[in-house]
Design a protein around this nucleic acid. Structure first.
Length: 282
DNA sequence: CGGCAAACCTGCGAGC
DNA sequence: TGCTCGCAGGTTTGCC
């Protein structure tokens, strides 16, 4: 599920509830997520005072102001973090693997049916391999077409696969890779190292624009993703190509009868949606 | 090292 | 109605 815009949305909402607050109690249920829960996790979160919550790629990093380790979290494919008032909380639900209760009577739950998520205490979270190897943050000013061009020059993989590689640029998953390439008019199958400077300029701009607009819409909900209130995101209504196989290209000038409209292909085991007429610069 | 497939899990919708 | 199959926002591992 969650790509950068969804994780950013969750981060902002959690920050509003949790920064400056103390966790009174944390509990885990079951064996863990993609890694087993650490035996010391719940003990270390007792009276953990949250100083800040930041995001790097699709990871959330919680820091403490009372000398505790950092708490690293990832939502995997199906993870949700929900915040309840204690008075309206209905107790642990199916697939709630982790629950925290705060001094001001909020309950924070991590619900993740597929258990691809991650909760990990670390003294140095930025040494976690998945974070240490991350490429640039696409919404920072330093992320430019030039940087993207340089990072793409090393790989002969198709551009769609390359921009989903977290080492090349952080935070982009299947949805926003498809949408950014559509917006740029670049074929998903074009080898990454063959993009021209003007194409990487366009692609970097498209990535920034699509991610920014998705954050403004609270992210995209297909099935599992939710905001901390349980409300869905809304950006799925703005998709141009994702999940739209056979539909007309939204640019309105492409000849659907010639190309079949939006096509769906398989790349590295993932579905790619694109308009072969608009995105045909192979 | 690069590239690719499979594995990790559960749920859901499609098709029979 | 009920079964099987394929597929789903991600990351990691292991094999050529």
């Amino acid at each position: 599920m969650p790509e950068l815009p969804e994780v950013e949305t969750v981060k902002r909402e959690l920050a509003g509830f949790l920064i400056g607050k103390t966790i009174l109690k944390a509990q885990t249920f079951g064996p863990g997520l993609r890694k087993p829960f650490q035996p010391e996790l719940t003990e270390n979160l007792k009276n953990y005072k949250i100083k800040d919550i930041s995001r790097r790629g699709k990871y959330l990093v919680f820091s403490s102001s009372n000398n505790r380790p950092y708490l690293l979290a990832h939502l995997g494919m199906s993870g949700k973090m929900l915040v309840f008032d204690r008075s309206s909380w209905k107790g642990r639900q199916k697939h709630d693997h982790f629950i925290m209760k705060t001094e001001d009577s909020h309950v924070v739950t991590l619900n993740d049916p597929r258990r691809f998520g991650l909760i990990l205490l670390m003294n140095d979270p930025y040494s976690y391999p998945g974070i240490a190897s991350l490429g640039p943050e696409p919404l920072e000013e330093s992320f430019t077409g030039k940087v993207l061009l340089s990072n793409l020059s090393k790989t002969s993989q198709p551009i769609k696969i390359a921009i989903m590689d977290q080492r090349i640029v952080a935070g982009i998953g299947n949805i926003y890779a498809c949408e950014a390439l559509y917006m740029s008019g670049i074929s998903p199958e074009k080898p990454a190292k063959t993009l021209t400077p003007s194409e990487t300029d366009k692609l970097a701009t498209s990535i920034k624009e699509i991610l920014t607009k998705a954050i403004e819409a609270g992210g995209s909900t297909l099935r599992d993703y939710a905001r901390t209130s349980g409300e869905t995101g809304y950006f799925q209504f703005n998709f141009s190509v994702y999940g739209k196989e056979g539909e007309k290209c939204p640019c309105c000038t492409c000849n659907t009868s010639k190309t079949g409209g939006i096509n769906k292909i398989r790349q590295a085991g993932r579905s790619t949606f694109f308009c072969p007429e608009k995105q045909r610069n192979n």
